[in-house]
Amino acid sequence: MGGRVTGAAGGLAEELPAWVTLLRAPNPGPMTLDGTNTWVLRAGPDAPAVVVDPGPADEGHLAAIAAQGPIGTVLITHGHADHTEGAPRLRELLGGNVPVLAADPAHTAGGPPLNADTTLDTGLDLRLLPTPGHTADSICLLVAHDGEQVVLTGDTILGRGTTVVAHPDGHLGAYLSSLELLTAYRGTRALPGHGPALADCGAAAGFYLDHRRARLDQVRAAVAAGATTAADVVAVVYADVDRSLWWAAEWSVRAQLEHLGVEQP
């Protein structure tokens, strides 16, 4: 949910690596943009694929994922339902023995939860990047193969607009640190959880950082002018956003006020 920012955070990727396939779930909406992106990564024609974010419990979408078999691993970037709801059913469709791995044990089946030291035998050079902030369990995935590299960003960076810091599970200080980490990946394509692929993960992270700092300045000004609640701040800072989305903006504002040390009723 991006307030005044509605375009892409930088240029769009012109094409995907040959070893990456995008399957987009049919769940478009204000918070999911065009729908949840399910990414399928495969080291070779006969290699077991890695599926990232199965998406919602939509039978057609899950059948399309299963048709990409063989599938060796299912990975979850964070625990929101639009990324995880379909995972149990997908596991059934895959015979019940394919591990579904996430940082949060609640979304993990068939293996240990993911952490920064996790290594996976996928045929791809795959590294986990803990990137808390949008949620406490958010991760990104740095994947290299055949001379190309991508970062799968979940909802930490979107293909269009900016993301919500989902207070109280999300934390703005952690999110800013995660964006700082991602600025290191200049020139690397970003494959987000929603929206189009971006040409430059590092540039998008820098754009997000600038946006967040500008928002913090706006929140400081609103508080100095007399706003006392998150709802008051939303009414000022997000005045140009559809009111039907103010509830989501309030999540981010609560995270901003916490970051600024402003006591909240």
Rank of each mutant, 00 (worst) to 15 (best):
L158H: 10
R160P: 07
G69T: 10
L142E: 15
D58H: 11
A57D: 15
V165H: 10
T84C: 13
R91Y: 00
D53G: 01
L141Q: 09
V165E: 11
L120K: 11
T119I: 12
A103L: 13
S138T: 14
V151M: 04
D58C: 11
P45S: 13
A116T: 01
V51I: 05
D137H: 01
E92K: 04
I71G: 02
P56V: 05
L126W: 13
A64K: 09
A87H: 01
L120P: 04
A64G: 13
D146K: 08
V100H: 04
D121Q: 14
I76P: 05
D125V: 11
P105F: 02
E148Q: 15
V98A: 06
A136W: 14
A43Y: 06
A136K: 13
A67L: 04
P112I: 06
Q149M: 15
D121F: 10
L94H: 02
V50I: 03
A109Q: 12
P132C: 14
P45Y: 08
G154Y: 08
D58K: 02
T162M: 14
R91V: 07
T131P: 11
T135F: 02
D104L: 03
G72S: 07
D82C: 14
A67E: 03
A144I: 00
A102G: 11
G79Y: 06
V74A: 05
H171C: 15
D82Q: 14
H134L: 11
A103D: 09
R91T: 03
N115V: 06
I157A: 11
H80A: 14
A144F: 03
L101V: 01
G95W: 11
G173H: 12
D82E: 14
T153N: 06
A57P: 00
H107Q: 09
R89V: 02
G111F: 06
A106P: 09
I71K: 08
